[in-house]
């Protein structure tokens, strides 16, 4: 079992579900990776590194989502 926080909300995952990367997390959350800025533990993760960034037990992920219009 492991827990991560996404935008302050705790999410539980079974022991066998780790590890997964940031791209996979966004897929699970049905978030379009082209329109999100991601921070893990306060560090910005560039979109080109989403699929190589491993999410670990205890990570705190912030996802800032953008919708069109201006």
């Amino acid at each position: 079992m492991g827990r991560i926080k996404v935008n302050g909300v705790e999410k539980e995952f079974g022991a066998g579900e780790f590890p997964f990367n940031l791209s996979e997390l966004l897929e699970m959350l049905k978030v379009d990776s082209a329109t999100v800025v991601a921070e893990i533990g306060g560090d910005i993760i560039e979109r080109s590194k989403f699929s190589e960034t491993v999410i670990e037990d205890g990570d705190s992920v912030e996802l800032i989502r953008f919708v069109p219009g201006g």
Partner: peptide
């Protein structure tokens, strides 16, 4: 455009 927003902020 949402993708442009992402690029600028990131």
């Amino acid at each position: 455009d949402a993708e442009q927003k992402q690029i600028l902020v990131e």
